[in-house]
């Protein structure tokens, strides 16, 4: 693979051709907020947090779905971008009932942390306060729509890694919901293998282990690397 040279925030950077811009930013240690992106899953480009400015292009681009190109000039933290990222996070907090204080993921939540990092300390939009259900019918896991940000990591991991495609999204727009099979109680699903991958990749408290209470839930994504290394490279590294 050939190497391309690009400029990121006024610094010359070399990268492998075919890499996504987001991967390069991460390698360089540039902090890029993300929510729908998760290494090991296909990219969705839906949360719009990793938007960057490309010189010569009037449109902003999501770094997770943009491939690096020779002579690309990238700005990742302009005033405008930071302002938009804050607004997007505000929109997410206003959309459903994200009450951090009483959430199982308090302290470990990606949404909570992205907001803190960027300095989103209040929400200017009207809280929509939708009346949403919880599904605790599965013997080991719980689904709480109040905390879901529709990143679809659960849908993708179940489809791409587990191969069961239990999850999908129903409806559209603000009425979208993640669903199990025919929008049925999780405990009644015949396709679910109870592997728990969806729970582990969920960035918020929308999916958690039954029995976890406030601030007790922690998630780990290492298994994705482990599975993919095994599949792609026939390497099973038990370290870490």
């Amino acid at each position: 693979m050939s190497v391309v040279t690009l400029t990121i925030n006024d610094e010359l950077v070399s990268a492998q051709e075919g890499e996504t811009l987001l991967a390069v930013l991460h390698e360089r240690g540039i902090d890029m907020p993300t929510l729908c992106h998760l290494e090991g899953l296909s990219e969705r480009g839906g949360c719009r947090l990793c938007m960057v400015e490309l010189e010569g292009s009037s449109r902003l681009q999501a770094a997770c779905v943009t491939q690096v190109q020779e002579d690309m000039i990238v700005h990742t933290h302009s005033e405008r971008l930071v302002k938009y990222r804050k607004m997007i996070l505000e929109l997410l907090f206003a959309e459903r009932n994200h009450i951090c204080a009483v959430c199982v993921m308090n302290g470990n939540c990606e949404l909570q942390w992205e907001a803190a990092k960027i300095g989103m300390d209040h929400v200017r939009y009207e809280y929509l306060n939708p009346d949403l259900a919880m599904d605790a019918s599965h013997e080991r896991y719980v689904l709480d729509h109040n905390r879901c940000i529709l990143c679809t990591r659960c849908v993708r991991v179940c489809d791409e890694i587990e191969g069961a495609h239990v999850w999908d999204v129903m409806g559209r727009g603000a009425n979208s919901r993640v669903i199990i099979d025919l929008n049925q109680a999780w405990g009644t699903s015949q396709s679910c293998t109870s592997c728990g991958k969806c729970v582990q990749v969920c960035p918020t408290g929308a999916l958690f282990d039954k029995g976890a209470t406030v601030a007790e839930m922690e998630k780990q994504h290492n298994f994705l690397r482990w599975i993919l290394d095994g599949r792609e490279k026939n390497v099973w590294s038990y370290g870490k």
Binding site: F93, I99, V102, V123
Partner: peptide, 19 residues
């Protein structure tokens, strides 16, 4: 100064908003 989550976000008291 909005002091604490209830003043900042509505927090637990706002749980009643769906009713």
């Amino acid at each position: 100064v909005s002091f604490g989550d209830c003043a900042v976000t509505g927090n637990v008291p706002s749980l009643r908003n769906k009713l």
